[in-house]
Nucleic acid binder design. Structure first.
Lengths: 253, 253
DNA sequence: GAGTGGTCTAGACCACGTC
DNA sequence: ACGTGGTCTAGACCACTCA
């Protein structure tokens, strides 16, 4: 009969109390205490708290209790022209510079596979579904904690026999190498989706429940017209509580 | 003792069966059937199914069962220069053209409030926290279903007494009007975050659980240097299963 | 009416973290 | 040892949908 389920009401009430700053120390009362306060069974309270967890509003720590998390996200500068401007003093790649400029310590672990790419990638690249790639997986760390997953797909037909195929960090970066080989990328196509992380992503990145990921995909083309060919695809998995994506643009009209 | 909770195992198994295409018709067995199949109580099965719902993998329909949803997202073209290129034949604003070009029917409902803006907006605009704005709320529909929420903040100090203050659709659009008033926006700052929707957003947009929203914020400035002043902030709430954000870029190096 | 998911209770045992 | 959240059971009643 109630307009709203008991646990929904409790969830809404808790949410309001949190926004009002009632739990300024970031710690909530225990499930059993809340059960007494609201006159509900522990499982009903768990329903309310579980809802807030799934929205990323609170976090549970086993053996301790529930707490209100707080993070200050890093900025992921996605603007191509901005990047180009600063490429002169870039090291491994511009990502390192970006993170360092925000006062954090970047690092990465690289692995290279060889094989085909997911269907959505080959579609975006306008290549055969069974085209072969060198797949450069980079697990990127900030302050020694896994912070993002970056996967780059380089077509074998273009880069067989080049350093891009090899499992080692490249100096200068692969984009510069590709340009020197005759495959510059004057045109970029960026595509941003958001979803909940897969089980693997959640585990690798140590993510809390209720936090989505950005999926930032970049395709590079050799030219601006129909004769252009795709140089690479890069897919970045960015936990949404750790990254804000920023584009700086100049409208040219 | 088990490495993984019972309901986690069941969730993982169901997930695998879904990926394998076992439920090609999109319908899952009932909770009670699954309970018998896995030899678990109904509440344990509900735990497994609930996890998949919270990841946006399945959806429950009261009185019917669980199903695997499928949507084909629209493309949200965010590139400023691309927009500028097509602005000549734009109608109300470029969003309508974009949606129409994808074979869908756009419409919107506008309301205008007057007041202050959230703290994060005034910070981005580099204005006082209690600065006054005309706040133009647009609930945007696609094929007559609410599909996105777009809120624009226009500083009163610039636009008092202009049509931008009034509660009516503007022809040409507000950006053109602002430019004609001496406030063009040659520089744009875009910022993209992702999070789970608030209760209000979820209700207004009719969203399923487990689906995040993109928050696309655009700030327009009158110039490229330090003397530039902020013209407006626009915040778009885009359900992630309905929108992909796309930027087309030309690297100018 | 029969089947579905939605909710809630009461109680049990477990693993984890602090004291 | 104690309190915390994590899990699971068994059973109950409800509202909704479809035949």
């Amino acid at each position: 009969m109630p307009l709203q389920a008991r646990y929904e009401q409790i969830a809404a009430d808790l949410r309001a109390r949190i926004s009002a700053g009632e739990f300024a120390d970031g710690k909530l009362p225990s499930e059993r205490e809340l059960g007494e306060h609201y006159g509900a069974s522990r499982n009903t309270i768990r329903g309310a708290l579980g809802q807030l967890v799934n929205l990323g509003i609170i976090r549970s720590v086993k053996g301790l209790g529930y707490e209100v998390p707080s993070r200050t996200p890093l900025i992921y500068y996605a603007t191509a022209s901005e990047k180009a401007k600063r490429r002169s003093n870039a090291e491994l790649d511009i990502w390192f510079t970006d993170v360092r400029e925000q006062g954090r310590v970047p690092s990465q672990r690289l692995t290279v596979r060889h094989g085909s790419a997911p269907a959505d990638i080959t579609t975006l690249l306008n290549l055969d579904p069974d085209a072969e790639f060198a797949i450069r997986d980079r697990l990127r760390y900030v302050d020694d904690e896994p912070w993002a997953i970056s996967t780059a797909y380089w077509p074998k037909v273009l880069f067989a026999g080049t350093p891009i195929m090899e499992e080692r960090d490249l100096h200068p970066g692969p984009n510069r190498i590709a340009a020197d080989l005759g495959y510059p990328q004057p045109r970029l196509h960026d595509r941003i989706t958001a979803r909940m992380p897969t089980a693997d992503e959640s585990r690798i990145l140590g993510m809390d429940p209720g936090i989505p990921v950005h999926v930032h995909t970049r395709i590079g083309w050799t030219g601006l017209d129909d004769t252009a060919i795709p140089v690479r695809a890069t897919v970045n998995i960015l936990p949404a509580d750790r990254w804000i994506i920023v584009y700086e643009e100049r409208a040219d009209d």
